[in-house]
Amino acid sequence: MVSTTARAGDRGAFERPTPRLSRRSKRTLTILALLAPAVGLRLFTAVYPYVQAIQLSFYDYNPAFPPKRWVGLGNYERALDDVVIRTSISFTILFVVASTVLQIVLGLGVALLLNRAFFGRGLVRAINLIPWAIPMVVVAVGFRWMLDPQYGIFNDLLDRTLGVNIAWLIKYWPSRIAVIGTNVWKSTPFLAIVFLAALQAIPQDTIEASRVDGANRVQSFFGITLPLLMPQVVVIGLFMLVWQLASFDLIFAMTGGGPGYATQVLAYSIYQVAFTGLNYGYASAVSMILFAVVAVTSAVMLFIFRRVEVTL
């Protein structure tokens, strides 16, 4: 990502000296003014409270059990000893990576599908947004019922077509597959519309030209379209990774982390630590661990994505 920024910077429109914008200070002021609202918002509602949280993570702080005590790395040690936190780290990564990869692949597919001209395209594009528009809590509760072995529509369909009936939410792997599947269903449309918007920004004649040159649909997709979409793919992929790492409502409403800890994710652990017991210090430490997981996962994904970009 960072390198892309540098590349673009080389061709800045305001780079060449013009009478009005030549003065350095004025330019700096302009930049600051443009950045101020966004940066200000982040400093105010994310960075500042997070710095506070870092501080808090070194304390044993629970308002119900005063006093507030300095414990150094105590909370971190406790977290790494905590079987729930330990097991939730691995599922968090699996959940987020599997979801993101599936969402990107399916999102691209849907975007290509909806980029074709056909009757009723506007309506279908609106329909595409439905899963995204349904509140996560409803999706979670709704899928829970759809997956019910006895009354669920999903199991009934499986039964009728394939003759299988799975008690999804009480088995280890099926429950994991179920939450990942639900999450993919929910968020794929979101990626699809971003990709769709990006597709529409690609000049049609570029693709036409390649088709005329004898490339088939698949070749022109991998040769032309995908490389042009790559910035969006990388950006949205990373975004989904990070965003989903911090989401807890699906797990909260669908499985409560169960069965056992099979679907426990870190964000839900933080929610539990902070709001079942008011362990603010401990919750802050787990938040920092989540942050570390986010950082490492995105670094790894970024690395993979860039290699992919190179091979293309």
Binding site: A46, P49, F248, A274, A283, S298
Partner: peptide
């Protein structure tokens, strides 16, 4: 800054 989980910042 996206990676700062919302839930960790609620109390401050």
């Amino acid at each position: 800054s996206i990676a700062l989980p919302q839930i960790g910042t609620l109390v401050p």
